[in-house]
């Protein structure tokens, strides 16, 4: 899986890229909430929401085909769920199952599009900055930071191990893939643990005392180490 785009757009950012991540995070949650509150079968508000989203996509400079492809990849689940829910939905008798199902699909497409657009125009680090501004507990933000940092290291490691395994395995049985894959996961897990030990040692070596500190934001007295 390619993860490079998580880094944000680099220098080629549009106006949305430069917008404060806190604003964008609030906006995307607000957008999803607004879409949820649209009643079944009301197409006009959904159409307006769609036009707003399309306008934002145009403004952002993100290639629409990219978003559409990802939306399309996520839609089968939604379509199937909608097909199941629609016939028995309380509103189905009044509006018809097609309208209900269509609304569910349209709503999901809109919110998925909005989230994907948000992810494309906001680099993950600033998402985390926004989360901590919204008072998400520091332990969670620290966990997310570490997860993000080592996502790249571990997926590289996994790729290398998978190649090494494949180059040594000669059986082509589907059964054989199971212990092979599990072995891969086990090896990755052991290495992740050992990596965790070393990272922890490296953090202690540079004076870590359990308090998460960051260069962002103002100095806060409570994060200063006791003297």
């Amino acid at each position: 899986m390619r993860l490079d785009w998580l880094e944000g757009p680099g220098s080629a950012g549009g106006p949305l890229h430069r917008l404060d991540a806190r604003v964008k995070l609030a906006a995307v949650v607000g957008f999803v909430l607004a879409v949820v509150l649209v009643p079944m079968g009301s197409w006009r508000p959904l159409g307006i929401a769609g036009m707003v989203l399309a306008g934002l996509v145009g403004l952002s400079g993100v290639a629409p085909s990219l978003l559409l492809r990802r939306i399309a990849a996520l839609m089968p689940v939604v379509v199937v769920l909608a097909a199941v829910i629609a016939p028995t939905h309380p509103k189905a008798s009044a509006l018809g199952a097609w309208a209900v199902g269509g609304t569910i699909v349209a709503k999901n497409a809109l919110t998925i599009g909005a989230i994907l657009l948000f992810a494309r125009v906001t680099c993950f680090r600033s998402v985390l900055g926004a989360l901590s501004w919204f008072r998400v507990p520091p332990a969670l933000v620290a966990t997310l930071h570490l997860m993000y940092r080592y996502l790249f290291v571990l997926s590289d490691q996994l790729g290398r191990m998978a190649r090494a395994r494949r180059s040594r395995s000669f059986r082509r049985s589907r059964w054989a893939e199971w212990p092979l894959g599990a072995g891969l996961i086990a090896a990755l897990m052991l290495r992740s643990f050992e990596r965790g030990e070393r990272v922890h040692a490296a953090m202690l070596a540079r004076g870590w005392d359990g308090t998460v500190r960051s260069l962002d934001g103002p100095d806060r007295p409570e994060t200063l180490p006791p003297t």
Partner: peptide, 13 residues
């Protein structure tokens, strides 16, 4: 905490 971050990356991978 360190392990949780790395384990989250591990689960993802």
């Amino acid at each position: 905490v360190v392990l949780m971050g790395i384990m989250a990356a591990f689960v993802f991978a």
